[in-house]
Nucleic acid binder design. Sequence first.
RNA 1: GGGCGUUUAGCUCAGUUGGUAGAGCGCUUCCCUUACAAGGAAGAUGUCGGGAGUUCGAGCCUCUCAACGCCCACCA
Length: 860
Amino acid sequence: MKELPTVYNAKEVEEKIYKFWEENEFFKADNKSKKEPYSIVIPPPNVTGVLHMGHALDETLQDILIRYHRMSGYEALWLPGCDHAGIATQNVVEKQLAKEGKTRHDLGREKFIETTWDWANTHKSRILGQLKRLGASFDLSRQRFTLDEGCSQAVKKVFVDLYNKGLIYKGAYIVNWCPRCQSAISDIETQYETEQGHLWEISYPLKDEVGAIVIATTRPETMFGDAAIAVHPDDFKYKDLIGKTCVLPLTGREIPIIADTYVDRSFGTGALKITPAHDPNDFEIGARHNLKPIWVIDGEGKMKACTEVPKELHGLTREEARIKTVEMLQKQQALLRITNLEHNVGKCQRCSTTIEPLLSEQWFVKMEPLAKEAIKAVKDGRIKFIPERWEKNYLMWMENIRDWCISRQLWWGHQIPAYYHKETGEMVVALENPDPNNYVQDTNVLDTWFSSGLWPFSTMGWPNTDAEDFKKFYPTTTLVTGFDIIFFWVARMITMGLEFTGKAPFSTVYIHGLIRDEHGQKMSKSKGNTVDPVEIIDKYGCDALRFTLTSLCTYGGQDIKVSDERFEYGRNFANKIWNASRFVLMNLEGDGVESLDNLNIADKWIIHKLNETAKIVNENIKNYRIGEVASVIYDFFWSDFCDWYLELNKVQKNEGVLVYVLKQVLKLLHPIMPHITEEIYQLMPSHNKALMLEDYPVYNQKLNYGDDAEKMEFIFEVIRSLRNIRASFNIPLSSTINLIAFTGDKVFEGAEKYLQRLAKVENIEYSNSDKMPEQSASATIGSINFAIPLKGLIDLNEEISRQNKKIEKLKAELNSLNARINNTKFVSSAPAEVVEKTRNSIAEKDAEIKSVQEIINNLK
RNA sequence: GGGCGUUUAGCUCAGUUGGUAGAGCGCUUCCCUUACAAGGAAGAUGUCGGGAGUUCGAGCCUCUCAACGCCCACCA
C-alpha cells in the first residue's frame, strides 16, 4: 500500500475521480434498459449565469437522488442543459455592445442573434463545466438547450396547436412594459416594491361654467392621456357633475365626467382621472365607457411628441415630466394639495426599472382552461409536492390564474410562428412560413418560460412520441427546485405537460429552501454577500460542500443560511473519513476481502448498527428527508465506527468485518460524498469496477444482532463511567486501575480486553459481597455496582458529593415517574406498553437508587 | 386585504403518528496515546416566544397575543 497523506487532498482526488467516471461513461443512461426508469431533468440554469450556491444545493440534491436510484437498481437519467434566458441574456449582450458604443440596432437582428449565440455557447460550456465541479452525474450526451433545434420544434408545435385550439390569442391590452428592456413582461415578472410617493390633487375646471372637479393622482404626468374623470355614481358630492365636461389644465382638452362604481369614494378626493392607455384599471373602465385611449408615454418611458402633450414636455422621461408637470400646474394654481403616500410600484424582475403599464398589442395564453387539469392533477395526487404546504400555494395561484402575456419585443428567443402577408396583412399561424416571398414572420419572440415549460418532454424527443428517450424516461420522476419558481416554471410544466402529453411531467415536486447569507439576507451580487460555491470547493472540497449543504436541509424546506465557516463541518467529516479509511487500509494483513465469519461481540454490534443505519437511510431518502440521511450516516461513521469500533479493533481485529463495514458505509455515503467514497473504494484491495455502480445497502433481517448489541452498549457504559472517574480524580491513563463488579454474573466475559485497552483496567474481580473496599470510587450501571479501589488517590468528600449528585438526579426522575404511575387516570388511559415501560423504568431507577445509596453508606 | 413560515442551549439549527429535550460551533478540564489536533477523553448549559385550552401526559394538537420574515393581490 502506497503512502497516503494524513490530510485529505480533495482537489486532486475530485478531479481524478470525476474524470474516471466520465471516461467510463458511467453517467450515460440506456433507453433500452429493462430496468425501471428514474429520471430527472435539471432546472436549466441561465446561460448568462455563473454557478451560485442555489445551484450547488439544487444540483447536489438531484445528484443524491440520481446516484441513490442508480445504485438501487433503476435506470437513472439525469438530463442536463441550459436555458437561453431571453431577456437576461439579451441584456448582458447589449451591455457588452454598449461598452463598444454600439446598440443591437447597429448590428441588425441577424448579426445580433449570431453574436448572442456565440456568447451563449461559450457560457453554456462554462456553466456546465462548473456544474461538473459539483460532482454532477448527469448524462452530458443528452445535454439540451431551450433554443436548440429540438426544443424549437416543440415550441412551434405547442404554439400552433394552442393557437388552433383558441388558447393563444393576440390582442391589445394593458401589459407591464419595461422601458429599459423595451418589452412587455408578464405579471409574475413584475415585482412590487413599496415606495414613498405623493398624492397630488389637481383641479380640472368645468367647461362653460364656474367650478372645478379635483382629482387625486400619484402620476400627474399621465394626465395628458386622461380620457375622462370618473366618480362613484352614488357620491352626492359629485352627483350633479356626472355627464358634464371638464377641461384638462395645461392643454385645455375637454374630457367627460363619468360615473363608475369602481371608484372608491373615500380615497383621495373621490374623483379619479382615467388614463386608459397607461393604467390597467383605467383601461377596464375606459373599455366599459368606450373611451378612446391616448398614448402619452412611449416605449422608452419618454413623453410622446404628440398634440396632447405640452411641447415643453416632449421627449422628457417620465420622472422629468412629473416634476415639470407639477411645476406647470403650480404656476397655474391648478395644484391644490400634495400629501405623502406610501404605495407599491411595479418593477422589472430583470432590471428593476419601474414598469410602465402600457396598452399594446401582444400575444396571450388563455390559462383558465389549461389550469383545470393542472389543478386536478395535484388534487388527485398524480403530482405530489414535498413539503406538502406548497400545494396550497400552487393551487391558490392556479385557481386565480390570469392570462399569460407571452410575447416579448426582443430578438433573442423563439420567434413567434405567425406570418403576415406583406400586402394584405393576413395572418397565418403555422410551423413554417407558408411563402417566404410574400409573408414575413412576427418580429416578437416568446417569453423564455414558454420553452422551459416544455422542458421535461421537449428534451426527450417530443413531438416525436416514438422517440426512445420519450418512451423510456417520460414522464420524469422527481422535479427538484426552489419555491421561487413554482409559478414561473413548475406550474407551466404541469399545464403544458398535461395538455400535450396527457401525463403529468413528474410525480413529485421536491421543493427545497433558498440559500441565504449568514444574516438571513438573500444573496445578491449587488449586495456583495454572495458565497461562491467554486471558491468553497477550492477551499474545502466539493464533497465537503455537498455534505454541509445536505446536512442543512430540513424536511420543512426551511431556507438555509451559509457562511464560509459552515463548510468546515463537511471538510472535517471528509478528513475523518479519509483518516479512518487510511487506518483500515494501512493495517490490512490479509487479502482485504470482506467476510462475516467468526463474529465477536464488537463485530455483531457494529454490523447491527450498520444494518439499522441502512434501514433509516433508505427510509429517509424515500421520504425526502435528506438532511436526516446526512446526520444518521455522520453519527454512525464518527461515533460508532471511528470512536468505538476502530478502537475495539485495535484490541481484537476482524479484518473481514472491518472491510465489510467500511465498504458498506462508503456505499451509504456515496450519493452525498461521491468523490472521497469512490477514491477510498478504489484504494481497497478488493473491489469491483466502481463504487457508484455498486448496490446500495438495504436492511437485512439476518444481520439483526440486537441482544449482542445491547451487551456491547453495556460495556461502553462501563467504560464511560471509568473514564469519568479518571477525569474526576485526575487519574492519568498511565496508571492502571482494578475493577470490582458486585455481581455473580460474569458480565464482562469476552470483553475484558476492551476494558483493559480502553479504560486501562488491569484486573477484574466479581464479588458477591456488598462490602465496598476502603477508599474506592464507584459506579452504578443498570443496577450493578462497581468499585474502583483508589487508595491514596481518592478524595472522600469529592466522591460523596459525586454520588449524592447522582442520587439526587435519580430521585427527581423517579419522583416524576411515580407521580405518573400513581395517577389512576394515567394507568387507565395510557396505552398498556407505555404503562409497562413506566413501571420498568421505576423498577430500574429504584434499583439504581438503592445501589447508589449502598455506595454512599459504605463511604461513610 | 388574503395566505404561509419562523420563534428550542451563548450562536446556527434538528426534533417523523403527543410518552422523561438533541447536533455542530463556542465554552470548561485533561491529552500531540504512531488513523485523524480538521483529532481524542470527560463535562457544563434549556420555566422549548407569552397566555389559555384539550389530554393521564404538550416542544409537538386547538385558540389567542407578540416579534420577525416571505408570498399573493393591488385603491388612483
